Simulated assay, not measured.
Amino acid sequence: MTTQIWLGLLGGTAFGFVIQRIGATNPNKMTRAHLMIESDIPKFMLMAVIISAFGLTGLLAVDSGKTVILPMTLGATTIAGLLFGVGWGLCGYCPGTTWAAAGEGRLDAVFTLLGGLLGAATFAHLHEYLIPLLYDSTSLGPLTLADISGSRLIGLGLLAVMFGLAIFAIHLLWGRDRHA
């Protein structure tokens, strides 16, 4: 196996361990997060994005990483977000936590995983028909915070500040002490 595959396996295993420890593989804890009772999972997810953004920026700075910025499409993103949110709310898992929960032996996660794979297969089958409807007509082109701010570092700073403020607000508004 190549170094990239080993690094991917190591990183994925570490991330799976962390999401299991934070409770994101427990649909009851996930429901409590959706009901704004427990704040651990949303704060963890936002922090994971911040840390990943710094890591990716570092890799790009030393020419060790590669990104492909896809066009931002309002139609496809809106429908995908609705499907993602409804599926997450119904099942209690997002795609990453589904795999980790299935690895824990949770049977409901196995069925969620099968449903997700069926949905992905359906999308792949219909993709060519959906491009003119959902992609081409609502595309804003590739768009990033770096493009908006004019600098990769300023974009990273904006993301870190916005998500950091979101973590702080979630902590204040969803804190366990207020809803216990």
Score class of each variant (00 low, 15 high):
residue 56 L to F: 13
residue 167 I to G: 00
residue 34 H to S: 04
residue 57 T to F: 11
residue 96 G to W: 06
residue 166 A to Q: 04
residue 98 T to Y: 03
residue 60 L to F: 08
residue 78 T to Q: 01
residue 129 Y to H: 13
residue 73 T to C: 15
residue 27 P to L: 10
residue 166 A to M: 11
residue 69 I to W: 13
residue 106 R to L: 14
residue 69 I to F: 14
residue 108 D to P: 03
residue 168 F to H: 09
residue 151 S to C: 09
residue 75 G to H: 04
residue 25 T to K: 00
residue 176 R to K: 08
residue 87 G to C: 10
residue 74 L to T: 08
residue 3 T to C: 03
residue 102 A to D: 05
residue 45 M to E: 05
residue 178 R to S: 15
residue 116 G to V: 07
residue 127 H to S: 12
residue 96 G to M: 09
residue 175 G to T: 10
residue 99 W to N: 07
residue 169 A to T: 08
residue 172 L to I: 09
residue 50 I to F: 06
residue 48 A to V: 14
residue 146 A to V: 01
residue 54 F to R: 05
residue 125 H to I: 12
residue 135 Y to S: 03
residue 100 A to W: 05
residue 14 A to Q: 07
residue 124 A to S: 12
residue 81 G to R: 01
residue 143 L to F: 10
residue 60 L to S: 10
residue 158 L to E: 02
residue 157 G to V: 09
residue 26 N to G: 04
residue 68 V to Q: 11
residue 1 M to G: 14
residue 132 P to V: 11
residue 172 L to G: 09
residue 120 A to I: 12
residue 134 L to I: 03
residue 15 F to D: 09
residue 81 G to Q: 01
residue 79 I to T: 00
residue 8 G to W: 00
residue 146 A to F: 03
residue 142 P to W: 00
residue 104 E to K: 03
residue 31 T to V: 06
residue 92 G to E: 11
residue 134 L to W: 02
residue 26 N to E: 13
residue 148 I to H: 06
residue 162 M to F: 13
residue 130 L to M: 13
residue 106 R to D: 13
residue 78 T to M: 14
residue 97 T to M: 05
residue 28 N to F: 06
residue 37 I to H: 05
residue 147 D to S: 14
